[in-house]
Design a protein around this nucleic acid. Structure first.
Lengths: 121, 121
DNA sequence: AGAACCTAGGTGCAATACGCATCTAGATGC
DNA sequence: GCATCTAGATGCGTATTGCACCTAGGTTCT
């Protein structure tokens, strides 16, 4: 994942986080890479890298979480259409559970008002 | 972030995700690396890599999200004690907001019952 | 004493992941 | 022809990562 950029702002989601976003977007309808790149950027959560997304999709296919076919029906360059697979859906559910744990854990620590000293730095 | 391992299981959190876990654990009390390694592994969310955790802590210090001092008061090898800084707390809050967006986005896609075809793959 | 083990932090290296720029190629418009 | 948009992909230098290994203080057992 992209690390800090010198301040306190988290970087863009990459790795499993980006994978999960992509899989989620493929849940109920096929899509192709170019489309996903645009939709991710429209969705506001930071601006994504084309190269990383295309490569993430190819890797998701290699590991069987999505599958793809070439779509030449539309005019213009051929599109590689992706679909979520069953393992992909499983991954997504596992990921959601893990993110929930992560989120709750952080929330718990943030909520726990300084029980010893509450140093202000 | 660690990628797939050939099945549908997400890898261990690394990158910003690991950073957030570490920062959260430092919220209200200082701790040292060895301790954090053990506590992370006890907390169940996968088993973490010693090297990655020590390096993450050093990098968090470089970017100012934590600070550290050597603690030689206890017996045994010296411990590098870490504390969360104000920027670190800010990072944590920003991260939580970002994770919430990520989580909600995935949840939204998972909940949206197949609105077109609902292919079972 | 010294061997074995635990704590604590760290490094070296190969493999992977990433951002950025660039490339190919079809289609459309001028 | 030439510019531009769509669509996918790659090359390359850097950053991260996992794994194994190393240093060093301390305790326990023999």
């Amino acid at each position: 994942m992209s690390e800090q950029n010198g301040n306190e702002t988290p970087g863009q989601p990459t790795g499993d986080m980006l994978n999960a976003q992509l899989l989620a977007m493929l849940k109920d309808w096929s899509a192709y890479g170019y489309e996903l790149v645009q939709r991710l950027n429209e969705m506001g959560m930071g601006h994504y890298n084309k190269g990383s997304i295309y490569r993430a999709l190819r890797q998701l296919e290699q590991t069987g979480l999505v599958c793809s076919i070439w779509d030449t029906s539309a005019s213009g360059p051929a599109r590689r259409m992706y679909q979520l697979t069953q393992p992909g859906l499983l991954f997504l559910q596992n990921w959601l559970a893990l993110v929930d744990m992560h989120r709750d854990m952080i929330q718990r620590f943030l909520d726990a008002a300084g029980r010893q000293g509450n140093r202000e730095d």
